[in-house]
Design a protein around this nucleic acid. Structure first.
Lengths: 195, 195, 195, 195
DNA sequence: GATGAATGAGTATTCATTCAT
DNA sequence: TATGAATGAATACTCATTCAT
């Protein structure tokens, strides 16, 4: 129904990220997003079928790009350990560089609306697969434990990174995420016992 | 203002968990919770100042009890490794045993309302401290890596468990959480490389 | 869903007739009806499921009563000719006595919304049956033409009365309807040629 | 302001009849009419000042033509009785031949918007005068009752025909209108009592 | 304490109309 | 003339909260 693309489409998505990060999803009225984007309320509906669709597109657009970038950066690395370090680095660095986006994805989009959840899950799955492939590769190369469960391992990697970013957002971002990359990487690789 | 305690207080909290797990937070009207609890709408306000307070109390009540139980079970263990295993087991087992509660805490309460976030954070912090103490103890005993950052380590442990439970809830709980305790425990202890 | 009956139910219906007659249906907002009825907007929805339902109930309530009254008055008449005269008199007199109601039923409720049309048609059908029974009786008694088509005859009677009331409403009710009863009665009985 | 005439003017009116008959007035957006007419939304406003004007012109154009045709056909008849028969026949036959137009004029245009009502009334009045002249002629020729009230008689004729067409439209046009001409004619001439 | 009828503030969405191209 | 993207006013309905009983 609604036409996608166009500079107003992008302007509305950008405005939505800004408004939601600042006010919370529940307090982000369509009219507020429209005003921030510099368009009329009705114009929103020329580009999106509903308010909900703004969220879905927002997540898919930005997360899709995020995932693609991470995938490419990882692909360039020579070995699986370097890939893991790169993944950790990319995840934390990219979200630190886009605080509004981080706020929206870590906090505001953890909504439970079934339709929304479904659409977001679809996109996240691409990221999950990327991590799982990395794990498989590590096992094949004999670097990771042979009995490693790839799903649990992915949940450890993603869960750890996700929680780190969430605490950072909740803490109002008082400290640097990038600085923690080496420690997090070590921890994921060798666990609490180290080495 | 509102008096706490009383059997209706508990009935309302129980009803809230049930209703929110079944309908989602956004579709859990006060009147629906009242009906489930077998009281009149207005009665809710004799026990809670606002709908939001139901959520806060719900989280504090159930999570507080959850944390206390975990603390006691851990305290009974002889060494820090056993304690970690017990923590993992308790976290996954208890939430698996209370699916409605798990649904509400993992999905429905990830709301971003500032007031709510603050109150929930308060309670979570108790759990975080418990985990951090365990890490400190492990380092003191020379079992955990001496350069381990206790905050990052806690984020790895909690983030991993949290993500595992969230995926389980989103997957409609098609598989067993308890069965994964040994693998998760191993992974946290020795990382992706194992041993 | 919505509870019926109660003095507020009646107050809202009365207010609706008044507001719609004065402003036209298209310009009769729910809030305007609520204000006229002396209740809050939300109260409307304790008694009606939707704005549309107000119209349906309004028509059924008032027209149902109208039809019942006409039926009883007719039943008391000794012969079919007296009954026809009474029908004409009752139709014109009653609507003349309730100008707001006449305005609403003649003009405002000729809407074409399928749901509305269906509900209103249901009620009108009761009136149609009443007229058709009268025609059958007239034919059985040999007073009306034996080859009279009861449906066409009903359409002539109702169409004539309906148009008379509609013109009267559109003319802003500058003249008396009751005064025309004898002529209309004569005309229906003997046609344009008279006698 | 807006220029009338032109092939697009006609195309828009034709499209309006089609769209309104198919979707109902309330669901006939300007953009829908424009699409059906094969023009841009804005083009509509080169030919009509407002959406309402489309309706007024539509009614005037088609009804005006209808009335003119009836007038000419009647004029050709030798006596007043033949003229009445011709009027009944023309009214029912022409509308039966244009079901979309009948739907729009009988059902969709019975709206109550004051401006609209006024404009439509203007056009209808021409038809009313035609019928009233016929009645006067009948009285002058001694065919119709000398004490016949020409306004009431016109209301009987028009009301009867109008109701017949309305029921036919509402019944989804399951039967033939033309077949009823003789009976309707007889009924109007001699009333319920016949002869 | 307990009730539940009543309140009324709050908001996504539609669509007739405009105007820069 | 013609376009169609953009506008923004307008409105039915929901639901947390109150308070008379």
């Amino acid at each position: 129904m609604a036409k996608k693309k166009g500079e107003k489409y992008e302007a509305i998505l950008d405005a939505a990220v800004k408004v939601i990060a600042a006010n919370g999803y529940a307090n982000s009225q369509v009219s507020k997003i429209a005003r921030e984007a510099g368009v009329a309320d009705g114009t929103i509906y020329l580009y999106f079928d509903s308010k909900e669709e703004i969220l879905i597109d927002l997540f898919n657009e930005f997360m899709g790009q995020f995932i693609e970038e991470v995938r490419q950066e990882i692909a360039a690395m020579p070995d699986v350990v370097s890939k893991l370090r790169k993944l950790v680095e990319a995840h934390l660095t990219k979200l630190e560089a886009s605080p509004d986006l981080a706020t929206v994805t870590q906090v505001e989009l953890r909504q439970s609306d079934p339709r929304l959840r479904l659409a977001l899950g679809e996109t996240l799955r691409g990221y999950f697969r990327l991590i799982e492939e990395l794990i498989e590769e590590g096992k094949a190369q004999g670097v990771f434990a042979p009995d490693l469960n790839k799903y649990l391992a992915r949940q450890m990697i993603f869960g750890t990174l996700d929680d780190i970013v969430t605490r950072w957002v909740w803490s109002r971002r008082h400290y640097s995420l990038a600085a923690q990359v080496p420690q997090v990487f070590q921890m994921l690789l060798h666990g609490l016992c180290g080495r």
